[in-house]
Design a protein around this nucleic acid. Structure first.
Lengths: 245, 245
DNA sequence: TCAATAGTGTCTATTAGACACTATTCC
DNA sequence: GGAATAGTGTCTAATAGACACTATTGA
């Protein structure tokens, strides 16, 4: 049993600095679709360790300001992209003695989906450059710091998997979009074509969209513009997209 | 840019104790089926804070011994139950300034599924009692320390959700079992009955089981005994269990 | 009128649910 | 033979894929 008789006495004597605690960071894979490709945001580190290497954006919890881990993630994302209302989802937490040269460390990995339009990438103290990189070029062109390559891969896998049975990709598009644009976005993330009628039935029957009333004109026949219903950010379908038989 | 010219100089001067780092723990919801009920393992805390309160088992990472977070989780589980090869899955990481009186803290929550038979619950330094509690009694009978009630609820929700489309419940049974026993286990976790033929088709067509060759006798007509194929621990079905139309 | 894209009608294949049926054991 | 449980045959309903079809615009 404890040597302290009351919890109050225990807490007054408690100092976290007496223990060998792991380092804790939050990192994120921020995805968007630009130029008909799924891309991920990378920063060039302006600080030790791994100064000058590419990495996923992230950093320490600000225990003075952040009220939760997702707040830390959103704060980092807003600093880099200016986007205030991203779709953010916790993916997995990684920990071990070897992943950071400073010692036993833990990182809580998030993925975020944001629309590409209107985003302006801004470097800060922690990063000298901020860029979009097509996910197809990851692993070969860009060598990431720490274990960020494998964190990225886990986030990408989660995204690709979830697209099979959820409406997540709506978060990659601007507020109003056509069904064809939405289908194209699904196809880009899935890496495979989708049958038009099935896709439209699936999305429309799910009831996650509503017509804006406006039309998108320009090419040929105008298309209806839709927006996401307030609660439609993450609908889960009872079946996965099955693809060709 | 950094005031250090080399990463080596930076690391030599680095001390984690100069920073205001969050506390990090690992907690887990260990599930099993006993007496035809889904139950979760609770411990009575033998240490401050919240000494004497019920809690999910867990604790600090041992930076000397643990090579990863899941190792920490498995070590805690083995200490309480003696089970060496549980099904363990990371669920979510929670963090915030209010969840622990010692300050900004983070816990990585895992859930585990273990067969009930042959498990002997053993208290240790950190826990004066270790018990199984039916999940139906959680929230009313047992008030948990910290934010463990909500962590438990998230783990339970993950489990119930995943049973809809995966073969996870096979991990709640002993090595050999009949299809009726497996069906009953699914029903207990789902909280709803399942149609026999549909269930058998689903499981058998998935190819995750193999016959042991032995039969279970005792009541009336003997039933074939099955075991999980090596890679069958977590099969994902393309559709969810839909229940009555 | 033609090209291009939006959007629909409808058939087929697959699979989960329903449920009655048969099979094998113990008593 | 009857109770009890294991296990099957087979029809129906729901839905995703296939794909040809129609609709509406600009040039």
């Amino acid at each position: 049993m404890s040597e302290f008789t009351s919890e109050k006495a225990f807490l007054e004597a408690y100092s976290i600095h007496e223990y060998d605690v792991p380092l804790l960071t939050v990192d994120m894979a921020i995805f968007s679709v630009l130029e008909d490709q799924l891309q991920v945001l990378l920063v060039k580190r302006a600080q030790h360790p791994s100064l000058g290497k590419w990495a996923l954006p992230g950093g320490f919890v600000d225990t003075k300001r952040d009220k939760s881990l997702v707040e830390t993630a959103k704060r980092k994302l807003r600093a880099k992209t200016g986007v205030a209302t991203p779709y953010v989802e916790q993916v997995e937490t990684f920990g071990g003695p070897e992943r950071d040269p400073r010692g036993w460390s833990v990182t809580v990995a998030y993925m975020a989906l944001i629309p590409a339009e209107g985003v302006e990438l801004v470097p800060d103290d922690a990063s000298s450059e901020v860029i979009w990189v097509p996910v197809k070029e990851m692993g070969s062109e860009y060598l990431l710091a720490f274990d960020h390559q494998s964190i990225f891969e886990v986030c990408l896998e989660r995204l690709k998997n979830k697209v099979q049975y959820s409406s997540l990709p709506v978060n990659l598009l601007p507020k109003a979009f056509t069904l064809t644009e939405l289908q194209r976005t699904f196809e880009i993330v899935l890496g495979q074509t989708v049958e038009k009628k099935s896709f439209r039935r699936r999305i429309l029957d799910a009831g996650i969209l509503e017509e804006t009333g406006a039309m998108k004109t320009g090419s040929s026949r105008p298309a209806k513009l839709y927006r996401v219903r307030p609660e439609g950010q993450a609908y889960f379908f009872p079946r996965t997209i099955e693809g060709k038989r």
